[in-house]
Design a protein around this nucleic acid. Structure first.
Lengths: 341, 341
DNA sequence: CTGAAAGCGCTTACAG
DNA sequence: CTGAAAGCGCTTACAG
């Protein structure tokens, strides 16, 4: 690959002049500029981004780490929506996205440390916010811009986040089910060590308490966001017999689809006997049978916003501090109905 | 951030010694190694990856460019499956993934040029293989390892690829429909300028010709891989009246779901009146109503294989030349049945 | 407007 | 086993 020196040599100028032309600096004579561009063209020169990064201490890269590279993670709509929002904004501002894979949460933290510590990105979007690891504390020490998806459990004015108000909207879903006459309502959460799961559980509990309903501990289960997790939750809860739930709330559509599958296998009619609500507003939910009622969470929009905050922070040099919320929306379809009498 | 010099200073050694410790070079006395590691620990030192990349001329980065950042692209299972396969292998070998967004095919080419020309990645996976742009020729000139998803239309021993045998398997799907008695079969392709679309169309045509069926030009339509594309295709074809198709083949599940939606709206029973086959084997297909017959294409496996080839090439320094094929599988479900009589 | 030099933070061939 | 130096390919403050 040709370097700036090759171009300089061919154009008969000093390398610094070539650099000035390519970094859009002013005070270059038209003639010189043309000679340089011609030489560059002839040689097929493109500035080496790595060298530039080293000098400028800026990579034009936004980092994200996939919390857990396993099949189920890529079946839900969450990851692609996050990527969509992120790529849209990154693309618009000329940033690239660096994606790290990980084999679990400890490893995720290691990877974030690594990427940040080795200065491979100018900013980070923190996807999974776990309760058992202080990723945020670590990131603050690194003094690198980052934005958290979801409000951290220990809110600080130092940390920027975009939040979907999980607790509030989960409570709203449960209230909707209660309004349909349901009293035995199941909660199928994701990974119990992830903040969003706890938030949703709190919303669930609050709504039930409001209505004077004392939930059975057996109504709460964790499906770790995979289809089979929802399926298995039904297998367990069905054993409760007359105390089995008449409605299920699942923390993503994938698990809700698993719930539908389990009910279908047992010939339990939805929504006549049991109602089901998913989360995320995926396309699969719209096309499921019966069409799935789901709490739409605007993950693409959230990530787009997070990316914007990040880029602004990188460009101004000011620490990101914006804390904002997005609104979710309960999309009511055919999988929910009045409680059986 | 502390640098290798800070560590050297604190440990009372020369920077080159610190470098040797961190790059795992032999011939370092145990005592020195410990002093260096202690100093590094105390300072929170991590080697700067950018500097290392510049020196070693190696980034530990695999690049991929999203052909078109728009909503529909992220609704199908293709992109997440590709990311899954890529991340799994990248993660395993300690590589990161650099994702570039693009606003269309010209821009995609520009981005690939850019990433490769500026040496931001050690290898590239070429996702969309377009007929109207010679990305491959350009990549060959750059002399960077790359692997193409899908067999290029001008096969060369110089180019590595992983192919899903689109033509052959599409023909198989059409034969299956013919076997069910269908004679009026529609083809709903993706973007007509993408190689896979042409391959599938050729498979479609070959299978029909084999059976002595002369297809109407109106039976071929392009839905650009989005749900609404399938929906609109039905709107158009239905106007053919008695010559309207009794079976639809769609080049992804998203379009097939759109086809199902259009048929449902018109109260055309599936599969009694019309059969529908999708492509990709998505979860949404399994949960659709009726459950969608679909041609499973192992995109995650393909990308994983492509990534392996790429990494091996990077590590050995040999140009990747492996050309391999994966097998697809027709998953027969409830959306296909005998042609109406 | 342009050149010469120093520096970004590493690695490694060369001495010793 | 370790130090000193050169180099990876840029950018930019300093002169002129």
């Amino acid at each position: 690959m040709p370097t700036i020196r090759d171009v300089a040599h061919r154009a008969g100028v000093h390398p610094s002049t070539v650099s000035r032309v390519f970094s859009g600096k002013p005070y270059i004579s038209q003639a010189t500029r043309e000679r340089v561009l011609e030489a560059a063209e002839a040689l097929g020169f493109q500035p080496n981004a790595i060298a530039r990064s080293l000098t400028l201490q800026r990579t034009n890269m936004l980092a994200i780490v996939v919390p857990h590279v396993f099949d189920g993670y890529f079946d839900d709509t969450f990851f692609p929506q996050v990527m969509r929002g992120l790529l849209q904004v990154a693309y618009k501002y000329g940033y690239r996205v660096l994606v790290g894979g990980s084999g679990g949460h400890m490893d995720e933290v290691t990877q974030v440390y690594d990427i940040v510590g080795s200065r491979q990105a100018d900013g980070v979007i923190v996807l999974s916010h776990r309760l058992d690891v202080d990723l945020i504390g670590a990131l603050l020490e690194f003094n690198i811009p980052f934005v958290v998806m979801g409000r951290p459990d220990t809110p600080s004015a130092e940390v920027a986040w975009v939040d979907a108000q999980d607790r509030r909207y989960t409570a709203e879903v449960i209230r909707y089910l209660i309004g349909l006459g349901h009293r035995r309502i199941a909660f199928v959460g994701g990974d119990p060590d992830v903040a969003v799961t706890v938030e949703r559980l709190l919303g669930y509990q609050a709504a039930l308490e409001e209505a004077g309903i004392e939930p059975l501990p057996e109504w709460v289960d964790y499906g770790f966001f995979v289809e089979d997790g929802g399926y298995q939750a039904v297998q367990r809860m069905i054993r409760l017999g007359s105390r089995a739930p008449t409605a299920y709330y699942a923390a993503n559509d994938l698990m809700a689809l698993g719930i539908l599958r389990a009910l279908r296998e047992r010939h339990i009619p939805v929504p006549e006997a049991v109602s089901v609500v998913g989360t995320n507003g995926s396309l699969a939910a719209a096309h499921a049978h019966p069409a799935l009622t789901t709490l739409f969470v605007p993950y693409a929009e959230m990530t787009a916003r997070a990316a914007s905050i990040l880029i602004r922070s990188i460009q101004t040099g000011e620490k990101p501090r914006e804390q904002s919320q997005v609104e979710c929306q309960l999309i009511i379809r055919a999988s929910t109905g009045p409680a059986p009498t």
